[in-house]
Design a protein around this nucleic acid. Structure first.
Ligand SMILES: [Mn+2]
Ligand SMILES: [Mn+2]
Ligand SMILES: [Zn+2]
Ligand SMILES: [Zn+2]
Lengths: 133, 133
DNA sequence: ACCGGTAATGGGAACCGTTATCAGCTAGCA
DNA sequence: TGCTAGCTGATAACGGTTCCCATTACCGGT
């Protein structure tokens, strides 16, 4: 069974309180700055568990894993600001059927797909690439 | 200017001689096994250069960069076998326009997208997940 | 409330892919 | 055939992640 610890709750709360994708190390720093004594390894474990349970989405960018507590419960994709990390959740049935039919057309079974769109969001485009509103 | 060394040629040849995505370390091991004295750092540099020149495509999987000498010169995506790495190059104009319009619809500029499909190819489905034909 | 077992924690070491360093080498050119 | 700037490769360093393991604390049973 999976025990409920204040550390897991803290990670989940910190994640839910953000609008962007965040790394384990960033989240750990934030928690420490807020006075928590949580360990880095625990943050890694909690995020991995949340992702496994479907409570968080994860993606890899710049060689690190980023996590986000998504509002949409089902399968969806992301439109992510390169500058500030602001994320929009995207539902696209066309993509789902395209991926499935493309795989089938080439004799590939059990298709999965990775679809992510990156760009510069409106606020970041105004302010310039350096700051992060 | 960029010099032409036997090391770069060896990396390019080794890459062209494969049908799958490979890591720098795997390619280095293969070259060494074939009698070459090429260094690991050189393989990393050569692959990075080939990718920059558009001679090779790269993607990240399981925390490592994989490279492939693609036949299609322009922008395209990949259908990749999880088991053996066999890769099919995919052209999908629908996806291109979808990604661009989705980004624009949410006020995101300079959109880029990552679209990869993974599955089990025909031969691998027959043989079972353990072997790699 | 009190155990007892057992999953979870956390600090540090280990791991692993990748990049930086730098002395020696060599492709390309006059 | 020399010059020289770019290239090579052994090794050290780096950064994110995972492992290790002694200690802690959650939780079901009493
Ligand atoms: Mn999808
Ligand atoms: Mn595309
Ligand atoms: Zn932004
Ligand atoms: Zn296959």
């Amino acid at each position: 069974m999976r025990r409920r610890t204040w550390q897991r709750a803290a990670v989940q709360d910190a994640l839910t309180g953000r609008y962007d994708f965040v790394s384990a190390q960033t989240l750990h720093s934030q928690l420490r700055a807020d006075g928590s004594s949580i360990g880095l390894a625990t943050v890694y474990r909690a995020l991995a568990d949340l992702a496994e349970e479907g409570e968080a989405d994860s993606l890899r960018a710049d060689g690190e894993s980023l996590y986000r507590a998504c509002a949409s419960p089902g399968h969806h994709h992301h439109l992510i600001c390169r500058s500030c990390g602001r994320t929009v959740e995207i539902q696209a049935d066309d993509i789902e059927t395209w991926a499935a039919s493309t795989a089938a057309a080439h004799g590939f079974r059990d298709p999965q797909h990775i679809v992510d769109v990156f760009g510069t969001c409106g606020p970041c485009a105004l302010v310039g690439a350096s700051e992060t509103p």
